[in-house]
Nucleic acid binder design. Structure first.
Lengths: 126, 126, 126, 126
DNA sequence: GTGGTCTAGACCACC
DNA sequence: GTGGTCTAGACCACT
């Protein structure tokens, strides 16, 4: 059984959810380099969605360099996890900076933000 | 002339941009309580977009309790700025917490986050 | 009537042909900046192919930054023709270099290649 | 061990890569006339690919007149290297001409092309 | 009206 | 068996 799941009722397109989902699995090392992804039809069956939707997601992942496909064999995880991870961190920091700017504009104290950070980082390791 | 502007190329719907835009103007006190908003057709002309889009945005703002409309007169800003501001701050803090969780999961140091905060808060007041 | 055409019997996917086709029209200035492209259904009718195929092509063109789409309005040509043109030239030169290497390996005289170039460049301006 | 290699990740079908690969070996004289090619199963084992793929490639090579097969014995290189070479050169020149036309249309100077040629031909003999 | 997404089902080349 | 392409037709949000 797969650990992948999507919410068809979300406003975010299923193929985007799927893309992000798999990206995270690769980032966390749950999907290891050169490991084969489930086939489009298989996964479509498990998630009860259309194979084409899976296909679109796989195509996007390949475009992003996270997976590669071999004709007649299937799709596999690339082994450049490091660069993907760096890119992901950079994107996160940008989003973070943007929201901090918003917070500043709304006159939220920076101490408040730091306190929130402390809370989250001191939570039990999941 | 209004200080309101929208970007039709953005992936975010125009009516959402407009809603957020006006919400900010109220928050910053640029639009004061009981001040009248520009008419639907007027604003549509200025922004070169469809009046229905403006209408949808005004409806959303009324639903959120930020403005009220009087039949045959127009739309006006409500005076509960304080509660709107609180709500806005709360929403910001939730988004902030969520992204901090993501950062933690990606093993970004909390010191890094605090440094980013310092940078932004020490920028010149715009 | 449109100047766009595709060959459904080619080995190259229709959506790729279409993408390349439109890219050339932009490059040659036949499609001008901010000009609207034909709608997916319209073009699908003209070319007697499925709207989804057009859609895939438009999506790729948007990803390449050659066009942009506005929700509910349509697709339009971007105005960064210069950068697209440069990128295109660079790609052409790479392909050219690669084939010259092959020619060298096959012991084709460089004089022969230059002669071919002369021939083509002295042809009547189309 | 053979000097043949293929890249299963490439978008180009493996059997095509293989065909081209062997063709080059014949052209360069590494595979000499009447020399026997590795057996289908042997080569399949070495390259870790499906025997059917090798079979398809050998069939294509035979169709092109580059090798011939003897029932129960195996496949052998034909000795009409000259004609193959000529055909290969002709194909190269056609591809070359086509790309030069594209370059002309993109207003790349012919001097630029000649310079590229000079560079490549003056490189150290590999 | 537009583009964007999704489904269902087909066909293809490749392995 | 696999992924890749294409068709037909539907639904959605946005304008």
């Amino acid at each position: 059984m797969s650990v992948i799941s999507v919410d068809p009722r979300s406003r975010k397109p299923i193929w985007e959810q799927l893309t992000e989902n798999i990206k995270l699995l690769v980032l966390r090392g749950i999907l290891k380099p050169d490991e084969q992804l489930p086939g489009v039809r298989t996964l479509a069956g498990e998630l009860a969605i259309n194979p084409n939707t899976i296909q679109k997601s796989y195509a996007e992942l390949e475009r992003q360099g996270i997976i590669y496909s071999i004709q007649g064999r299937g799709c596999f995880v690339t082994d450049n996890r490091q660069s993907i991870e760096n890119e992901h961190k950079k994107a996160l920091e940008e989003k973070f900076s943007k929201i901090v700017s918003d917070a500043k504009e709304s006159r939220i104290d920076k101490e408040r933000l730091c306190a929130l950070i402390e809370n989250i980082y001191s939570e039990s390791e999941s």
